[in-house]
């Protein structure tokens, strides 16, 4: 699709294309550093991790670091699968809640006119600029009042009102959905909930796919340290970070952990991004 559009666009000079291509390749090589480095480190045998002068690339790749990690995790009294389950639970419910509450509110804020709308939007934008650090104590007090300390929900529920995600959604809804389309559906007698689910949400698919990437990343790194104290409820990043604090002898294992922690969001990102490209290729919808 995009290829067809490109050919139609006359406002492109070959020289400009070349300059852009050069810039992009240079930037890409520089930006790819952490991924290449993380992969390379994870497969280095211990003696290569401490070479002088240090080498960027691995020479004799080995799986030792991953084996060591497996052995270490096998000794932990909470099985690794339990940590993984905890993480997946928090990520799954947190993400689903983000998208549902965020997109419902975003739809009404972007496409309805009702008393108080402007005020709500103003407060939401302002709240983005308040440091979250200082709000953690009131949140803790509330969670302990509700007896939710040491449950997944103490981490999951506050995440459901993720302001940044809502604000992103609201901007996409405003720009990508034509009012005329909604009016037509209303005249046909569709309920607002149906319009939201069957018209608005499919159009802004790139928005909520992007939101899922961001929410996933945020929740995947969640250690829950403030709210969860029982070992068997702790998350994978927490468990892995405990292993990595073992000092120099654990350098190899840490490198393996870094690769695992990076690989999961990368996979989610790739799947999502390819879906975004797919949607844009097939739907002819666009904003004003």
């Amino acid at each position: 699709m995009a290829i067809r559009i490109r050919k139609k666009r006359l406002s492109r000079s070959t020289g400009g294309d070349l300059v852009i291509f050069f810039f992009l390749s240079l930037g890409a090589a520089f930006m790819a550093l952490p991924m290449v480095y993380t992969v390379s480190q994870a497969f280095k045998p211990l003696n290569e991790l401490w070479l002088f002068p240090p080498q960027f690339f691995v020479r004799n790749p080995t799986l030792d670091n991953f084996n060591d990690l497996l052995v270490l995790m096998g000794k932990s009294w909470v099985p690794i699968t339990r940590y993984l389950f905890n993480s997946l639970f928090i990520v799954g419910f947190g993400m689903a809640g983000n998208v549902v509450t965020g997109s419902l509110a975003a739809y009404a804020l972007a496409k309805h006119v009702f008393p108080g709308r402007k005020a709500i939007e103003q407060i939401i934008v302002l709240s983005l600029m308040f440091t979250p650090t200082v709000t953690s104590i009131p949140t803790y007090m509330l969670m302990s009042r509700l007896n939710l300390i040491n449950t997944y929900w103490a981490v999951v529920i506050p995440n459901w009102s993720w302001t940044l995600g809502l604000y992103l959604m609201r901007n996409f809804m405003g720009a990508m959905i034509h009012d005329s389309l909604l009016e037509a559906a209303r005249i046909d007698g569709a309920s607002e909930l149906r319009i939201y689910a069957q018209i608005a949400m499919p159009i802004v698919k790139p928005a909520w796919l992007t939101m899922i990437i961001l929410a996933f990343q945020r929740l995947w790194g969640e250690t829950g340290a403030l709210f969860i104290y029982r070992e068997e409820l702790k998350t994978l990043p927490y468990a892995l970070s405990q292993v990595a604090t073992g000092g120099i002898a654990r350098a190899g294992v840490s490198a393996a952990i870094a690769l695992i922690m990076m690989a999961v969001p990368v996979i989610v990102f790739v799947i999502n991004q390819s879906k975004i490209v797919e949607t844009m290729g097939t739907s002819g919808m666009g904003g004003e």
Binding site: V100, T101, G102, L104, A105, Y107, A108, L109, H112, I120, I123, I124, S127, F130, T135, T139, L142, I157, P158, W160, S161, T163, L166, E192, Y196
Partner: peptide, 14 residues
């Protein structure tokens, strides 16, 4: 539509 978000937003942010 706004309710669920706004309730949680009020409790955990405002």
């Amino acid at each position: 539509f706004v309710g669920p978000f706004l309730f949680l937003f009020t409790v955990f942010t405002v």
